[in-house]
């Protein structure tokens, strides 16, 4: 895993990423492609937070859709029911997600392995039931309608292009934050937890606090994604934040490659686009989707990023010989 130790913040890389975003935004005209890219961006936000938790801290979560839902529902309720300014609602949504993450994380992160997975799963399910049953506030199973669109002053985000920029510059900022953390002292301590929690405790790493901090961070990113999703679609329903969504998030992280923020981007893109490609299979879509998941994990357990890179390197070595 020497490569991730070496991946210092590379200003050139981030400038390049910035340029790509700006260019793609300019070139893509069709509203449908803009929408696909926006959804990829939202999914990337979800995946990158979870990637920090799973890839760097080594803690699995099968309930992260709850934070996604908390972000979406908080902003929906505040803006549509109480006419609060959306950007204030964003702050409240993130703070609420953080508070809940602390309360839930404290007892849950004491667990490990499958038990941690189960604990987070249970918590995710409970929140999904809350979204569904607290119908006076959340609109219940039929969903919440009429979430207003975003704007700053006279700049409206209603058009696809502006929303594209909003989402992708959020992604860009989140990537920057993540890569700073990864390359800090805290980041190195996190990776030590991933390798061995006992060993890192022995050398004086406060593992519990660190794990909690990453958990909270990923919850905040998910809430941000929820905020962007809610104001984009303008409708939310509990079905979008269920157990399957949590599983999809984990899948994005694992397929893209753990311990790599760029892998999160790849995983989110693939998982958003795969169902679109699989439309051609119509009835066979589920079968193919399941097969793809299994095959990727069997052949490239470290995710596509690492897996394809390995193949590339191997073939190059062969060529050299």
């Amino acid at each position: 895993m020497c490569d991730m130790l070496l991946s210092r913040i590379n200003p050139i890389r981030f400038a390049f990423f910035f340029l790509v975003i700006a260019l793609v935004g300019l070139l893509v005209d069709n509203a449908y492609y803009q929408q696909v890219l926006i959804l990829i961006g939202i999914n990337t936000l979800l995946a990158v937070g979870l990637n920090m938790l799973m890839g760097y801290a080594g803690q699995i979560s099968l309930g992260h859709a709850a934070f996604y839902g908390i972000g979406a529902y908080t902003t929906a309720i505040l803006t549509a029911k109480y006419q609060i300014y959306p950007w204030i609602a964003l702050v409240i949504a993130i703070l609420l997600a953080v508070a809940i993450a602390v309360v839930v994380g404290l007892p849950t992160l004491k667990l490990s392995g499958y038990y941690l997975g189960m604990g987070t799963l249970g918590f995710g399910m409970i929140f999904n039931i809350i979204f569904r049953e607290w119908s006076s506030l959340t609109g219940g199973a039929s969903g919440f309608v009429g979430i207003p669109s975003l704007s700053i002053g006279s700049l409206s985000f209603e058009s696809g292009r502006n929303y594209f920029y909003l989402v992708w510059f959020s992604v860009w900022s989140v990537f920057l934050i993540c890569s700073r953390i990864i390359n800090s002292r805290a980041g190195r301590a996190l990776r030590s937890i991933h390798d061995s929690e006992n060993a890192s405790m022995a050398v004086g790493v406060d593992t519990m606090t660190l794990k909690l901090q990453v958990f909270v961070l990923s919850a905040a990113f998910s809430a941000l994604a929820g905020f962007l999703y809610a104001h984009y679609i303008s409708f939310i329903s509990p079905g979008s934040f269920d157990f399957l969504m949590s599983v999809r998030m984990v899948t994005m992280v694992v397929i893209g490659g753990m311990a790599s923020i760029w892998g999160a981007l790849l995983g989110a893109s693939l998982l958003t686009l795969l169902p679109e490609w699989l439309h051609a299979f119509s009835e066979f879509e589920m079968v193919v989707y399941g097969l793809v998941l299994m095959l990727v994990m069997i052949l490239m357990p470290q995710g596509l990023t690492r897996g394809i890179l390995d193949i590339y390197e191997r073939s190059r070595e062969k060529y050299r010989k």
Binding site: S7, F17, V20, V24, L266, I308
Partner: peptide, 19 residues
């Protein structure tokens, strides 16, 4: 190592191109 982000950028662009 330097190849990695470039590689991913290409991969993502290919994905996008396919739609």
């Amino acid at each position: 190592i330097e190849k990695k982000p470039v590689f991913i950028a290409v991969a993502v662009l290919v994905c996008i191109a396919m739609i």
